[in-house]
Amino acid sequence: MTSRLSPEDQARVDHYLSAPQHQVERKPFRPWLLLAIVLASVIGLGLLSRLLSRLVL
């Protein structure tokens, strides 16, 4: 993909991104953990809503 920036602006962007504060090591993305958290949240909120409906009615 070609850049739409001028060479001077691209050099500034490259210099900015190469700074140490922008070189953060991150853990790999784990989609199964995200899916488990979402499912647990949905099931937990569903059970809580059923409990609350039985307490109110």
Rank of each mutant, 00 (worst) to 15 (best):
L5H: 12
S6R: 05
E8V: 07
E8K: 08
E8S: 08
E8Q: 08
Q10E: 15
A11I: 00
R12K: 11
V13M: 07
D14P: 00
D14I: 06
H15K: 14
H15T: 11
Y16C: 09
Y16P: 05
Y16K: 06
L17D: 00
S18E: 11
A19I: 02
P20V: 10
H22N: 15
Q23K: 13
Q23M: 03
V24K: 14
R26N: 03
R26H: 12
R26E: 06
K27M: 03
P28K: 07
P28W: 01
P28F: 00
F29E: 02
P31W: 06
W32T: 08
W32L: 09
L33M: 14
L35K: 14
L35H: 10
I37V: 13
I37P: 01
V38Y: 02
V38E: 06
V38I: 13
L39Q: 03
A40I: 04
A40M: 10
S41Y: 04
V42L: 08
I43Q: 02
I43Y: 02
G44R: 12
G44E: 07
L45V: 08
G46M: 11
L47D: 03
L48W: 05
L48S: 07
L48I: 12
R50C: 00
L51A: 13
L51H: 15
L51W: 15
S53M: 15
S53E: 02
S53W: 14
S53L: 12
L55E: 13
V56K: 04
L57W: 10
L57P: 07
L57E: 14
